Amino acid sequence: MAPALPPLNWFRAFESAARTLSFTAAADEIGMTQSAVSQQIKSLEVRLGVPLFERKARGLALTDHGRRLLPQVDAALTTLTGATAAFDTGQSSDLLTVSASISVIHWVIAPRLPEFTERHPDVVLRLIGAVWPDEFTRIAADVEIRFGSQKQAATDAELLGSDRLIALKSPGLKGNFENLPLIEAVGTSDGWKSWSKVAGKALSAPALFVDSYGSALQLAVNGNGICLVHELLAAHPRQQGLIEQASDVSIAANESYFLSVKSRTEAAAAFRDWIVTSPSGGRKPE
């Protein structure tokens, strides 16, 4: 059996940092925080067992290992971009395209989508998962829901839901908070370390690591431990009794979900109004 590959986003972070020789520039380019880029590159170095960068006082320099890896990663990403672009057939005039992270599509949009389609039966909806800024640019969606910091959000973007992280677990998972497994979503600035400082609790190291809040939430729903995720994603599973708060302590998130409407169509406006006034969106109808 072939060994599992490292996550694609690790390679994206490496390629951008190697090209710009700056974690900060790479973070701005791919829509992440500097600490998240640094963490993902460190994870790649640990996985490969070699240093990829020399971290100097005045910036970065590629090691011999990094110089050897860069052209191969660049070629692979170019191939993947070309392969997926071949399936982008364009957008028809009667189609509403919404691009968002898989976590938002799974936990926020999908559970309440029947309500939207019932209200707007003539709208043909296309949902496309996207994470990186260039993916959003290529898709040219009518509505975008991006994950990132307020600084990284578009000037016309609005916060979707809250900007709080909460601790959640399955109702069937019994035990004291301190003794239960912790699930950590990597690639973000916030985590259990930040939460423990606010809560004033000494916690054990996370037992499970995933690459998104949506995956962390799914693991918690299935009873695998306590997750720390955006309140936005938790609205529907909490309402359905799939998950419950494990603590009253919440913390402010450095990265949140931001919505922007890119086309002036009635369908786009209708989708925006529907999602921001839904329970997940965190607002009441005016």
Rank of each mutant, 00 (worst) to 15 (best):
V221I: 15
A234V: 08
S189H: 01
V186C: 11
A270Y: 07
S247M: 09
P279I: 09
S280K: 05
S280G: 14
V276S: 03
D190W: 07
D190K: 12
E266K: 10
P206F: 05
D248Q: 05
V210I: 00
Q245T: 15
A205W: 09
E184Y: 08
K262F: 01
V198T: 15
I226F: 10
D190A: 03
G282R: 06
R264Q: 12
C227M: 06
A220R: 04
G241R: 08
F271P: 01
W274N: 12
V276D: 00
H236Y: 08
N222A: 14
D248C: 02
V186Y: 04
V261Y: 03
S196R: 12
S260Q: 14
K193H: 11
S250G: 00
S263Q: 04
A205E: 13
S247K: 06
V229C: 06
A253L: 11
T188N: 11
E231Q: 15
L233A: 01
A205Q: 13
S194P: 04
L208A: 10
V229A: 13
L259R: 02
W192R: 10
N254Q: 14
A216T: 04
E244N: 03
S189D: 15
A246Q: 12
S194Y: 01
P279T: 09
R238D: 00
T188Q: 15
E231P: 04
F258G: 07
G187L: 07
